[in-house]
Structure formats: C-alpha cells, structure tokens
Write a protein that binds this DNA or RNA. Structure first.
Length: 399
DNA sequence: TCTGGGGTCCTAGGACCC
DNA sequence: TCTGGGGTCCTAGGACCC
C-alpha cells in the first residue's frame, strides 16, 4: 500500500452515477440488467441513462427519438422528482455530517471542503471512501469522487473516477493530469467554444496552457480567455460557499424565474399561444409569490419550428408579482412581433430583476386597481393550497 | 416524431446623463 | 469646431451548466 496521496487535497467533488436512472431502478429487480432511459418523452430529451443504455451510445440531453433508435430495447421511465429530491436530501445530509462546507451544485452533485474534518475522520481519500460506502448502504446507489486541491481539478477528477470510483489528483500531478485532456473537458467550454478552439489548433488543455493569454482572449473574449488560461494551469482560486440549491430552500435568492413549454405540435394559432402564455405566467407568478419576490423585467422566448429562437423583453416601472400585469406585458411583447403564420415550437415567460416583495413601493396612482389584482392572486394561492392546482385557474384555461 | 426545462453569465450597441 | 468620456440602464442574443 503506497502512501496516501490525498493529504494536500481538501476538496471533494461527489457526483452520483447516472443518478436519475440509478434511483429509478434501485428498487426494481425487473430493471436489473436492462438498459434504462429516464425522460425521453414526446419531443423530449434523455435526462439520464444507465450504463447499459450508454453502451449503445445513449447520452444525457440526446433527443429521445435518437436514443430509441440507438437502443430500441431500452425501458423508458419518467423521472420521479419527489423521490429524487428525497434521495438527494439524504445524500447531502451525509455530506453535512462530514463538513458544513458543502456547496450543492444540483440534485446529484456537490463540492465538499474537508480541510477541518481530517483530524476527526481521516484523510480526504478515507473520507471519500466512507461517504461512498454510506451512500451505497443507505440509498442503494453509487457515486464517484474527485479529490484535489482545487474545485476545478476535483470536478474533472470525479469524471475520471466514474463509475463507482475515486480519483485523487495531488498537486504535483495536476499538469500531467490536466494537459492531455481535450479542451472541451474544462468547465465553461461547451460545444461551440470547443469547436472554435479546435479550429485554432488548440486541442488539449496543454495547448491552452501554452497559448499566450492575449491570443486566447482575442479568440474567446477577455473573461473566458483568462478563466481558461488559469484553469489550464490548475490555478483555480475558487473556494467553496456553503449552499443549497434554491429548489430546496435556504439557497441564494433566485435572480429570475421562468417557465417554458414545447407544444405537442408546432402551432401558429394565436389563441393557443396566448393561452399557453397565460398558463406559464400563472405558474411563474405562483412560484414568485411563494418565494416572496417581485420582478421588473418580463422576457418572452419564442422558438420557431426551425428551432431558431428570439427573445423580447420589457422592463416595467416597478417590480410586480401580479399575474395579469405580467401576462399583459407578455402578450404585448408577443403581438409586437407581428408574426404572420409563423409556426411556433415553444414559448416561454421569464421574470428578471427579482427583489423581495416587501421592498416594492407601489405608486399610489396605480395602487387601488393593482392591489385588487394582487389580492385576487393571493386568494387563488390560498384556494390552490387547500384544494389543489386544478381547483382554480383562469377561465381561458378551462376547457 | 430531432433537438426539455430551469437557470446564470457575458457581450455589445444604443440611450441617457453628467 | 468634424468626433470627449465615463457610468448605468435597457435590450437582444448566445454560450454554458445540470
């Protein structure tokens, strides 16, 4: 047994293996040894696929039609977000028993700073193995852990550890670990930036590291350029901020809230589109009122049948959470597009510039009327809480 | 049956103000 | 007498992440 290399590596990145698929199959003996795809509904994409399905080339975010072609024998299941949330919360609780410095990234992913826990629990590597065993025993799912001195290297290490493993990257091994990787592996380099960098002949992280900063900045912009240059040398100063994802409360306040929906079939019917805008607005303002926020900028998104998309936004004089105000703004933005028979694939409504509701000063001239609508919204909220979402909805959403 | 839904951040141009 | 120069807000688009 060689010396534990993890002592100067206080950052853990824990990532559940095929989380949605693992949770969906863990209590289903009938799905053992079967390729499983989560998501993949009508006009949808794959949310997660188990490793058997991945052997056929199925990947997350892949159009479900393509996934089914690649693996027709796969069993497709819908995600159970309540169950996923419960499992996720339990897992995150395990992390918080190790250290309060837990930064939750998503349902299935978190960073831990275990600097202050080694005296009590052992080396970072030992902590990683303890967590993996606990999660496996308690939840019946596996995870992978990256152990490193920095956030970005730990993140890359966990990917390398998959599935069901641990990878430690000690400080002296950082460049030999990073530099052979494709530039697309770096956090912040997606499909477009990867293609651009490849066109410039920058294939690996090592190539990035040895490119003059100014050259890089000219190619991808000042901010991303200097960011990538630092990442390429593993010089990531980012620290861990204890954080929940806001969906579970206790997180940072949201800066925007929105909803969008792809139509079952493309449409150019203004009535259908307006009704959808109302449904989406109702959904968003309901969430805003639960969170106690109001917002000033209303943005609509319109995606056409050819998948191109445009946005239009309007900033109101004052923040609001009133359904009717936001809906009126959204429909005006839509009508101002002056679309003639353009077939739409999707519409969306988003409210930005969110502030706590109690900081909003209503102008008196508008006060009476708007307060009336605000109170109507709140009455709807109360009825929804008592009788369910189906109980109260705008008349145009009946039928 | 091509391509979800929820977000964040960056860039860039024009308006506007001092 | 060609054309300052910031800072901030608004809008639109786009890349990226999970």
């Amino acid at each position: 047994m060689s010396a534990d290399p993890s002592h100067s590596c206080p950052i853990l990145h824990v990532d559940m293996d095929a989380f949605y698929a693992s949770v969906a199959t863990r209590n289903r003996p009938d799905l053992q040894g079967v390729p499983v795809i989560v998501g993949g509904g009508y006009r949808g994409v794959v949310l997660s696929a188990n490793y058997l399905a991945r052997q056929y080339g199925v990947r997350s975010a892949m159009p479900s039609t393509r996934a089914r072609r690649l693996c027709p024998q796969a069993v497709v299941v819908a995600p159970d977000f309540e169950e996923l949330g419960r499992v996720s919360s339990s897992v995150m609780e395990n992390f918080r028993r190790v250290t309060p410095l837990v930064e939750v990234v998503s349902l299935d992913e978190a960073f831990l700073d275990v600097r202050g826990s080694t005296r009590r629990l052992g080396s970072p590597l030992e902590i990683a193995e303890q967590l993996r065993a606990t999660i496996h025993d308690e939840q019946g799912i596996t995870c992978s852990v990256g152990v490193a001195a920095s956030v970005s290297v730990a993140k890359l290490a966990s990917r390398r550890a998959k599935p069901d493993g641990v990878v430690v990257v000690p400080p002296e091994g950082i460049t030999s670990f990073l530099h052979p990787l494709d530039v697309g592996e770096l956090w912040g380099v997606g499909e477009k930036t990867q293609a651009m960098l490849h066109r410039l002949g920058l294939m690996t992280v090592g190539d990035l590291a040895h490119t003059p900063l100014r050259t890089l900045q000219r190619a991808v912009g000042a901010t991303l350029g200097s960011h990538l240059h630092e990442l390429a040398w593993g010089a990531d100063r980012r620290t861990i901020t204890p954080r929940n994802v806001s969906a579970f409360g206790g997180g940072d306040p949201d800066k925007s809230m929105g909803a969008q929906e792809t139509f079952g079939r493309d449409t150019d019917d203004r009535e259908v589109i307006a009704r959808e805008l109302l449904r989406l607005t109702t959904k968003v303002t309901g969430r805003m009122r639960v969170a106690g926020v109001a917002g000033r900028t209303v943005t609509i998104t319109v995606r056409f049948a050819d998948f191109t998309a445009i946005t239009r936004s309007r900033t109101l004089p004052e923040a609001t959470d009133v359904t009717l105000e936001i809906y009126r703004t959204a429909t005006r933005l839509y009508d101002a597009l002056g679309l003639q028979r353009a077939r739409l694939r999707l519409v969306g409504v988003r409210v930005e510039g969110l502030v706590p509701r109690e900081t909003v000063q209503r102008q008196l001239v508008l006060g009476e009327r708007e307060r009336g609508w605000s109170e109507a919204d709140r009455a709807v909220d109360r009825a929804t809480r008592r009788f369910g979402a189906a109980a109260v909805r705008p008349a145009s959403l009946l039928s």
